[in-house]
Computed example of a mutant assay.
Amino acid sequence: MKKILLLLLCSSSLMLSAQENYTNPKETIKTFFEAFHEQDTSKLRSLALDELQLKSISTDENGELKITTEKYADFLKSIKNIPSNLIFEERLLSYEINTDGNLANVWTPYEFYLNGELSHCGVNNFQLVKTENDWKIISIVDTRRKNACQE
């Protein structure tokens, strides 16, 4: 009997921790970056809707506005193809979360490092939708700048 109770307690705690990753927008974004750093494209795919596009806002060498768009499938391919000798880390500095019903907006200032050196900084803006069981990312827009980054 004690073994059965122990088994039930363990399995229910596993179920709770599995659900925890998707029950609120912040946990979805935290899971996104864990998967990003692990280059786990299957997990990344599970966190977003198929039609997701990524947009980046920056300036070119002449200071002109530059907006690039990337399909999520192409982003996943590029993550999978990062060489093992390249160490990358995106450090989120804070989270600002706003929700209204099934819509959430998560604003995360960040610093991006390549091989331990600051590469660029900016802000990620994630839009998420609450589906039947979890929050899914429907849009990602980021800014990228090389200067005015704080270390």
Rank of each mutant, 00 (worst) to 15 (best):
K2H: 13
K3I: 03
K3H: 11
L5P: 09
L5Q: 14
L5G: 09
L5I: 06
L7W: 03
L9I: 09
L9W: 02
S12E: 09
L14Q: 11
L14N: 08
L16R: 11
L16Y: 12
L16M: 14
L16T: 10
S17N: 14
S17C: 14
S17H: 04
A18K: 05
E20G: 02
E20W: 13
T23A: 12
N24P: 12
N24E: 13
P25Q: 06
K26N: 10
T28V: 15
I29M: 07
I29L: 08
I29T: 02
I29Y: 10
K30C: 07
T31I: 00
F36N: 12
F36S: 13
H37Y: 00
E38D: 10
Q39M: 08
S42D: 13
S42C: 07
S42K: 14
L44I: 02
S46H: 00
S46P: 10
L49K: 13
D50V: 04
D50I: 05
L52H: 05
Q53G: 02
Q53L: 04
L54G: 13
K55V: 09
S56M: 14
I57N: 03
I57L: 08
S58C: 02
T59G: 06
N62R: 03
G63I: 01
G63D: 07
E64N: 15
I67G: 13
T69D: 03
K71C: 03
Y72W: 14
A73W: 02
A73P: 08
F75S: 10
F75Q: 02
F75T: 07
L76S: 09
K77F: 04
S78V: 11
S78K: 11
I79T: 12
I79S: 06
K80S: 15
K80A: 13
K80M: 03
N81P: 01
I82M: 07
P83W: 01
P83N: 15
P83S: 10
S84I: 13
N85L: 00
F88D: 14
E89P: 00
E90R: 00
R91N: 15
R91K: 15
L92E: 06
S94E: 13
S94N: 13
S94V: 05
Y95H: 10
Y95E: 11
Y95S: 11
E96A: 08
E96V: 07
I97T: 15
N98S: 09
T99S: 14
G101I: 01
N102W: 00
A104Y: 01
V106T: 02
W107P: 01
W107D: 14
T108Y: 04
T108K: 01
T108I: 02
P109D: 11
P109N: 09
Y110S: 03
Y110I: 02
Y110M: 05
N115R: 05
N115H: 11
G116W: 14
E117F: 01
L118K: 12
L118R: 06
S119K: 10
S119V: 00
G122L: 00
G122R: 06
V123G: 01
V123T: 15
N124S: 07
N124W: 12
V129G: 09
K130W: 05
N133A: 07
D134A: 09
I137K: 01
I137D: 06
I137N: 04
I138Y: 05
I138S: 12
I140R: 07
V141M: 15
D142Q: 05
T143S: 15
R145N: 13
N147P: 03
N147A: 13
C149L: 11
Q150L: 15
Q150N: 15
E151Y: 07
E151R: 04
